[in-house]
């Protein structure tokens, strides 16, 4: 019979991770309510202006705590039942309300994809699905908690606007500018974003703001990919005199095909950067648009491979999969010099 001891063997110690999971939730940038939880902050502001706005969450009430405090009667807790939350919201919207559903990304667009398509998208209802903790944000919780296929799914929906803000200010601005849309909206929230904008841009429907102008390479990112593009562009200019056109692809559906094709034709090199699978996301839509237009362009993708992913704290995973400014710069360099 083996004997089990609660004590560790002598001389044994726990290998402490250098970067802890908790870092994801306590980024130094997040000093205000807005930067800590921009999607929760924005809906509270919008809710004060439009009483048709209601929020729903499936065991995610903490993310709309401020809204609940101000408008308790307009919050609908759904328990751990995401599919019900989406169809329920469709019913609310059909009766004239504007529901914002807050869910963890893997259990939002992924688990409820069919409810979203059939009840919300096909019926053109103004429901908003806000997916927090997208991509690899839930790190070592395991691959069940990853959401790296959600954009691929969302952008095949016929009537859904797909948004992926690149930082907190852009999130608030995007939510504000889409609040009155009479169509479904999916808002994918990345947690590991860095500050890109000092002031939030005014987003025009379906347009990609340009962060920087150059003629050597086109860098396009959404979510955390936007900050990576901005940082890489800076480094490319400083160290290699490579000048990059940089676009904020916050709108993934519809997307800015005009800006994309004009820039691609100009630079001849296009690199997309995203915390999403290589299959079906920004990289795919850019490749499709360029192929359709018949442009002869070198394409590169910094994204997650479409195979079983590793598990670990997000910061380590980003390093492992090359979602870093230095890797984006290296990819851009090799694309240009190939």
């Amino acid at each position: 019979m083996p004997t089990w001891s609660r004590r560790s063997p002598p001389g044994w110690s726990w290998p402490m991770a250098e970067k802890k999971m908790v870092d994801v939730f306590s980024d130094v940038e997040r000093e205000t309510a807005m930067t800590a939880n921009p999607a929760g902050y924005a809906v509270t502001e919008l809710g004060a202006e439009d009483e048709r706005i209601v929020t729903l969450a499936a065991d995610m009430s903490n993310t709309v705590a401020e809204f609940i405090a101000k408008f308790p009667e307009r919050y609908i807790e759904c328990g751990i039942a995401e599919t019900n939350s989406v169809s329920l919201a469709a019913g609310l919207a059909s009766a004239g309300l504007i529901p914002y559903i807050y869910s963890m990304s893997p259990f939002g667009m992924l688990k409820t994809c069919e409810q979203w398509r059939t009840d919300v998208d096909y019926n053109h209802l103004p429901v908003r699905l806000v997916g927090r903790l997208s991509g690899l944000a839930m790190g070592y919780f395991g691959t069940s908690h990853y959401a790296v296929e959600d954009i691929a799914i969302a952008r095949t929906m016929n009537n859904t606007v797909v948004l992926s803000p690149g930082d907190a200010a852009s999130c608030v601005s995007l939510m504000r500018s889409t609040a009155s849309l009479e169509v479904p909206v999916y808002i994918r929230i990345a947690e590991a974003v860095s500050r890109v904008y000092d002031e939030a841009p005014d987003y025009e429907f379906g347009k990609w703001p340009r962060l920087r102008t150059g003629s050597d390479v086109t860098l396009i990112g959404h979510g955390m990919g936007l900050g990576l593009c901005a940082a890489a562009a800076e480094a490319l200019y400083e160290h290699d005199s490579i000048e990059a056109d940089v676009f904020d692809a916050a709108y993934l559906r519809p997307y800015d095909e005009t800006a994309l094709l004009a820039s691609a034709a100009k630079t001849g090199h296009v690199l997309t950067v995203e915390e999403h699978s290589v299959a079906g996301g920004l990289g795919s839509l850019v490749a499709e648009a360029i192929a359709r237009a018949g442009l002869s362009v070198r394409l590169g993708q910094v994204a997650l491979p479409d195979k079983d992913l590793e598990v670990g704290v997000p910061a380590d995973l980003y390093e492992y999969y090359g979602l870093t400014p230095s890797n984006v710069a290296a990819k851009a360099r090799s694309l240009v010099r190939r």
Binding site: T83, N84, S87, L88, G91
Partner: peptide, 17 residues
């Protein structure tokens, strides 16, 4: 399987409005 959820949403909307 969807419509009882949708109906609950409509019923809830009646309460809210």
């Amino acid at each position: 399987g969807h419509n009882l959820s949708v109906g609950a949403g409509m019923a809830l909307a009646a309460r809210l409005t």
